[in-house]
Amino acid sequence: MEDKKADIFNCGKKLFSSKGFKDTNVSNIAKMAGIAVGTFYNYYSSKEKLFIEIYLKENEKLKKSIMESVDMDNDPIKVVKEAIAINLNGMHSNPILKEWYNRDLFSKLEKEFYEEGGIESIYELTNSSIAELIRKWKTEKKIRDDLDDEFILSLFNSVPYIEIHKEEIGIHHFPQIIDYLVEFIMKGLTDFRK
């Protein structure tokens, strides 16, 4: 049974990557997996549920690659800016993760995303590593220690939410806005004159 579920997952991933969410349907996935459409529904209640599971796995891989590729011993401003840049690049270069920017699709999948624990999954994956990094930087006197760790973590977690609203903010300014916001946050955290 697990092999069939893995086949469905892998075929869905291939089709979502090549055709996109909108142009992929359950019958395409079932045909590629060599199963009946009804069998698909034994494992996933909808195309959306499968997509969210694939999306979360792809996002997990991206977050792990960021943690492995960024030198956490560098200056905190450089570390955070580099991590944000790698994340944005990864989101734009992965066809599944790129669907996050498809406003029509995301509004349709947002409910599923939250119901499936998407935001908790992302935070669980990254928050423990970031919290550890915050404690390390405080110990090394690289960032202010007068601010609560949870508050600092919330500052970092706010950046992706801003990204969701880039159209309202102004898409032509968006990459610079993220870069400056991260810089301003980090400069505030590393300014010891407070």
Rank of each mutant, 00 (worst) to 15 (best):
residue 2 E to D: 09
residue 14 K to H: 05
residue 14 K to W: 05
residue 20 G to K: 01
residue 23 D to W: 10
residue 24 T to V: 04
residue 25 N to Q: 08
residue 28 N to Q: 09
residue 32 M to F: 12
residue 33 A to I: 04
residue 36 A to C: 15
residue 39 T to D: 09
residue 41 Y to A: 12
residue 41 Y to C: 12
residue 41 Y to H: 14
residue 45 S to N: 12
residue 47 K to L: 04
residue 47 K to T: 08
residue 48 E to G: 06
residue 48 E to Y: 08
residue 54 I to Q: 03
residue 57 K to H: 13
residue 60 E to Q: 13
residue 60 E to M: 11
residue 63 K to C: 14
residue 64 K to W: 14
residue 64 K to V: 14
residue 68 E to N: 14
residue 70 V to K: 03
residue 71 D to L: 06
residue 73 D to K: 03
residue 74 N to A: 05
residue 74 N to Q: 07
residue 76 P to G: 00
residue 76 P to M: 00
residue 82 E to H: 03
residue 85 A to Y: 03
residue 87 N to V: 06
residue 88 L to R: 11
residue 93 S to H: 09
residue 96 I to A: 05
residue 100 W to R: 12
residue 102 N to I: 10
residue 106 F to M: 13
residue 111 K to P: 15
residue 113 F to H: 15
residue 116 E to V: 15
residue 121 S to Y: 13
residue 121 S to F: 13
residue 122 I to F: 15
residue 122 I to Y: 12
residue 124 E to D: 11
residue 126 T to E: 06
residue 127 N to D: 08
residue 127 N to S: 10
residue 128 S to D: 10
residue 131 A to E: 12
residue 133 L to R: 02
residue 137 W to S: 00
residue 138 K to I: 01
residue 144 R to F: 00
residue 147 L to E: 00
residue 148 D to K: 02
residue 148 D to S: 02
residue 150 E to K: 05
residue 152 I to W: 00
residue 152 I to K: 00
residue 152 I to F: 01
residue 155 L to F: 07
residue 157 N to S: 11
residue 159 V to E: 09
residue 162 I to G: 09
residue 169 I to L: 06
residue 170 G to H: 05
residue 176 Q to D: 04
residue 176 Q to P: 01
residue 177 I to A: 03
residue 179 D to H: 09
residue 181 L to W: 11
residue 182 V to A: 09
residue 184 F to A: 15
residue 188 G to W: 09
residue 188 G to L: 11
residue 189 L to H: 06
residue 189 L to Y: 06
residue 191 D to F: 07
residue 194 K to T: 12
